[in-house]
């Protein structure tokens, strides 16, 4: 109990509140690395890593390049009995455009490509000034909050697993060749996973001072 705060102390910024279970911690315990996760619900409060900022910026930039490439290059090629069809990621999303399923085109493009791209762009925007010890960018707080709320909706990894299942399903019927975009997409998923590992939102929020709002 010695680490938790007394109610009479002046409020923020001396406290950290667990966003999941409302437990209150003094900022000093989290700051010195003595506490990284909430003691009762084990939500990670802080996982700072040295030099993570620069790494995340680089990964996010790479992500943007890979997404651009993965859209247009051939993703999968299918060959069966003299027939041949090539599909890019754009084609895959557009497969729903036949009939009344246009909503799904938009949805697939959003969750597989647009949202991961927007998230990467927002992270670059927020983190680049911080990495170079400059003043945070305008609306950085709002941008970072948006990036974090988009996280569950970026489903590139899910799509990657979907690819695996689809491949197993059709390899019986026909020969499938993996295009350049497929490999780019595989790397992309790996980058996104590493990026999420290294991103410590608590450190970022700490770097963005309260005055940056407006």
């Amino acid at each position: 109990m010695s680490d938790t705060a007394k109610p009479t102390d002046p409020p923020a910024p001396h406290f950290v509140v667990c966003p999941q279970c409302d437990a209150l911690y003094s900022v000093r315990t989290v700051d010195k690395g003595r506490l990284s996760a909430c003691t009762r619900c084990h939500t990670v409060l802080a996982a700072p890593r040295r030099k993570a900022g620069m790494l995340i910026v680089c990964l996010a930039l790479a992500t943007l390049v890979l997404i651009a490439g993965a859209i247009f290059l051939p993703f999968l090629t299918l060959e069966a009995q003299g027939f041949r069809s090539t599909a890019s990621l754009l084609d895959i999303a557009l497969s729903f455009s036949a009939g009344r399923l246009q909503a799904l085109v938009v949805l697939t493009l959003m969750v597989v490509l647009a949202i991961p791209a927007v998230r990467a762009a927002l992270l670059v925007y927020v983190l680049t000034p911080l990495v170079f010890d400059r003043r945070p960018a305008r609306h950085a707080a709002r941008a970072f909050r948006a990036a974090q709320s988009l996280k569950p909706w970026a489903m590139a990894e899910v799509f990657a697993l979907g690819c695996a299942v689809a491949l197993v399903k059709i390899t019986d019927l026909a020969q499938v060749a993996l295009g350049q975009a497929f490999w780019m997409f595989t790397v992309l998923v790996a980058l996104i996973v590493v990026q999420d590992r290294f991103l410590c939102s608590w450190s970022v929020w700490n770097a963005l001072k309260p005055t940056d709002l407006s």
């Binding site: 509140v17 209150l24 709320s149």
Partner: peptide, 17 residues
Amino acid sequence: VLTARKAGLVGCRHCAE
């Protein structure tokens, strides 16, 4: 555990402030 509410505080669910 002392919760923020018991301490007369409200915590931000986005940034833990």
